[in-house]
Simulated assay, not measured.
Amino acid sequence: MQILNTVKWAAVAALMAGPILAQDQVWPDRDSDTLLSQSDLQDRLTGRTLVFFDGGTSAYKRDGTYQWTYAGGGDWHGMWRTMEGSVVCVDFITEVTRCDRIVESSDRLVVLTADGQRFPVKTTE
């Protein structure tokens, strides 16, 4: 029973630490990447859908809701917010928070993930 309680509290602590740790992430920037101010990022995302080359989409709705649609179907829903440092965070309904950096590079928005991936945006609708 003691082990089970310890595991539960460790899981809760990890979930609570997620958003705090997200603020200290380091993204794989390149020299050609231009960071956006928090207000510019807010303006670039609000009410728009980013379409990626694989067909997936990220919809940043005006009411603060977010919807990620996989290229092959399937959705993830949450609430989005911008932060300093060209960062956008999504609090998913699954109680997981994810933060990415969105930069401009060669006249294109690019989503940088903390695990080193770069996802150029094909179009913005």
Rank of each mutant, 00 (worst) to 15 (best):
residue 37 S to C: 08
residue 37 S to A: 12
residue 46 T to S: 12
residue 121 V to G: 08
residue 62 R to E: 09
residue 112 L to I: 02
residue 53 F to N: 15
residue 25 Q to A: 09
residue 103 V to P: 02
residue 73 G to E: 13
residue 17 A to S: 13
residue 108 R to E: 09
residue 74 G to N: 09
residue 16 M to F: 09
residue 16 M to G: 06
residue 19 P to V: 07
residue 78 G to Q: 07
residue 72 G to T: 15
residue 65 T to E: 10
residue 27 W to D: 01
residue 62 R to K: 14
residue 70 Y to G: 12
residue 60 Y to R: 01
residue 122 K to F: 11
residue 110 V to D: 01
residue 57 T to Q: 06
residue 70 Y to T: 10
residue 67 Q to N: 14
residue 113 T to G: 10
residue 76 W to V: 08
residue 51 V to L: 15
residue 125 E to Y: 05
residue 88 V to E: 03
residue 17 A to T: 12
residue 92 F to P: 00
residue 76 W to L: 13
residue 100 D to S: 07
residue 88 V to A: 05
residue 51 V to G: 06
residue 51 V to W: 10
residue 92 F to Y: 15
residue 84 E to L: 07
residue 121 V to M: 10
residue 37 S to V: 11
residue 81 R to E: 06
residue 98 R to L: 10
residue 52 F to M: 14
residue 85 G to E: 06
residue 24 D to Y: 12
residue 98 R to S: 08
residue 49 T to M: 05
residue 87 V to S: 02
residue 45 L to C: 06
residue 30 R to Y: 11
residue 93 I to S: 08
residue 83 M to A: 15
residue 125 E to M: 05
residue 27 W to T: 02
residue 27 W to N: 02
residue 44 R to W: 02
residue 43 D to Y: 04
residue 80 W to H: 04
residue 43 D to F: 01
residue 54 D to E: 14
residue 52 F to G: 06
residue 51 V to E: 11
residue 105 S to G: 05
residue 55 G to E: 10
residue 81 R to Y: 08
residue 58 S to M: 08
residue 98 R to Y: 09
residue 34 T to N: 14
residue 49 T to F: 05
residue 28 P to W: 15
residue 80 W to S: 01
residue 101 R to L: 01
residue 21 L to Q: 05
residue 96 V to S: 05
residue 54 D to M: 14
residue 81 R to V: 02
residue 25 Q to N: 10
residue 103 V to Q: 03
residue 121 V to Y: 13
residue 46 T to H: 07
residue 93 I to P: 00
residue 70 Y to P: 00
residue 95 E to I: 14
residue 115 D to V: 11
residue 81 R to C: 00
residue 120 P to D: 13
residue 105 S to I: 03
residue 88 V to N: 03
residue 47 G to Q: 12
residue 73 G to Y: 13
residue 64 G to C: 09
residue 35 L to H: 08
residue 121 V to E: 13
residue 98 R to W: 10
residue 119 F to P: 00
residue 118 R to K: 12
residue 20 I to A: 09
residue 80 W to C: 02
residue 35 L to R: 13
residue 116 G to W: 11
residue 106 S to A: 15
residue 90 V to R: 03
residue 60 Y to L: 00
residue 82 T to V: 15
residue 56 G to C: 04
residue 17 A to K: 10
residue 61 K to Y: 09
residue 51 V to Q: 12
residue 119 F to T: 01
residue 109 L to Q: 04
residue 26 V to Q: 12
residue 98 R to C: 00
residue 39 S to F: 04
residue 104 E to K: 10
residue 74 G to P: 11
residue 56 G to T: 06
residue 54 D to V: 15
residue 41 L to G: 02
residue 66 Y to Q: 04
residue 45 L to D: 04
residue 89 C to S: 13
residue 66 Y to N: 03
residue 46 T to G: 01
residue 119 F to I: 02
residue 87 V to Y: 02
residue 63 D to L: 14
residue 27 W to I: 01
residue 25 Q to C: 01
residue 115 D to M: 09
residue 57 T to F: 11
residue 28 P to R: 14
residue 65 T to N: 11
residue 66 Y to D: 02
residue 69 T to Y: 08
residue 119 F to L: 07
residue 122 K to E: 13
residue 42 Q to A: 05
residue 39 S to G: 00
residue 120 P to I: 15
residue 63 D to C: 13
residue 85 G to F: 07
residue 46 T to P: 02
residue 94 T to W: 06
residue 31 D to W: 09
residue 49 T to W: 05
residue 93 I to M: 11
residue 72 G to K: 15
residue 91 D to W: 11
